[in-house]
Design a protein around this nucleic acid. Sequence first.
DNA 1: TAGATTGTTAATCGATTAACAATC
DNA 2: TAGATTGTTAATCGATTAACAATC
Lengths: 216, 216
Amino acid sequence: MSESRNCIQRLCRYRRTLKDLKELGYVKIFSDNLGEATAVTAVQVRKDFSLFGISGNKKGGYIIDNLIEKINYILGKDEIQKVIMVGAGNLGSALARYRGFEKEDINIVAAFDADPAKQGKVNNIQIHNIKDVFEYVKINKVKVAILAVPATVAQEVSEILVSAGIKGILNFAPVTLRVPEKVVVNNVSLAIELENVIYYVNARHRGEKQKNEHGA
Amino acid sequence: MSESRNCIQRLCRYRRTLKDLKELGYVKIFSDNLGEATAVTAVQVRKDFSLFGISGNKKGGYIIDNLIEKINYILGKDEIQKVIMVGAGNLGSALARYRGFEKEDINIVAAFDADPAKQGKVNNIQIHNIKDVFEYVKINKVKVAILAVPATVAQEVSEILVSAGIKGILNFAPVTLRVPEKVVVNNVSLAIELENVIYYVNARHRGEKQKNEHGA
DNA sequence: TAGATTGTTAATCGATTAACAATC
DNA sequence: TAGATTGTTAATCGATTAACAATC
């Protein structure tokens, strides 16, 4: 039952690589190649696949289309996932414009901000008043939100989102959110990610250890 | 020797909480309280501290100032770390404006972009032509870079950075960078982080497992 | 002292890796 | 067939947790 965070991240990376390979006209792939392209060992690739019941051909490798389809199903990419952006400040509006989401077929359907001056659109996404977020989530049955509001209001806003029916939050506010057990929170703390890099750079200067390639 | 990625992330979170507590006038703290504030068990807190040789008082807990100082040293916060932003598009310029970095005493000293039209400043940070990045890094002995350039040029740019002396990269481009062993790369893939949330939301709908609080 | 807390050693757990069997 | 590749089972490794000793 090892669908750990890391494992899911690897699936996402496989998917991305596979889509690129398909684009280039490839039809089949070996665990070897896929591993090399994603900085994962070939054994790990096969283990991941076998964990989710994806099988290949003993000598012929895996069929790319088949892999993509299976991974799409696992990741829930077969259904369209509506995502809202909560907070349309610097970070929020940059994220709303971020090409990487579109590329992965992620659909940001609306943005919300407390500042009434922030009306209009960002990257063709309508910015609404945050007061309307509860109703919007309810009516449109949105399950996933990106939270890019100031740390001071993040907890409060998250409670509104959860009460409206949000089941998963990608949180950019640097606070530990308290949410009900059933709600998934993935905290992306940009400062911490950078501090991590700084730590390892310093640690090496101080002559400790030799590791490489941290994170996904 | 368990200074794992997770462990360092926890140190960063402890530090943040401790600074907030200090601000509020607190002087001492128990592993209990600190754990609760950072969503970590008290045992884990003490284990982390003992790993780095930080000790408290058998009944009196830990002195906050002492903790902050020790953690600062471990994380390399005692020396000023110059960081450059490479790529000043949507994401790059939003990151340059991001308050969370300042709050953690992270100093973005310059930004670079390939588009000559992107002259001027963002958040009081000068945007230079990317052609000058090699020289800038050499002269100013910069060790850490944030990479927010398009995926297509990320590898190429990273090679320039490394050749100029960059030792750590926080990479926002959704590609697997190939860098020498001695260079630290921390990949932040925003799409993958969001896909992770979507996966767990779906997985629960499908009636699997009950986990909570993923990521840092 | 009794109770609360730190800090360490041992046990557990989970994920990765190694070894190898299966087979195209 | 021989070689290459998948896929599984067992071994290893590392991190977290449990148990408990130390002590203020």
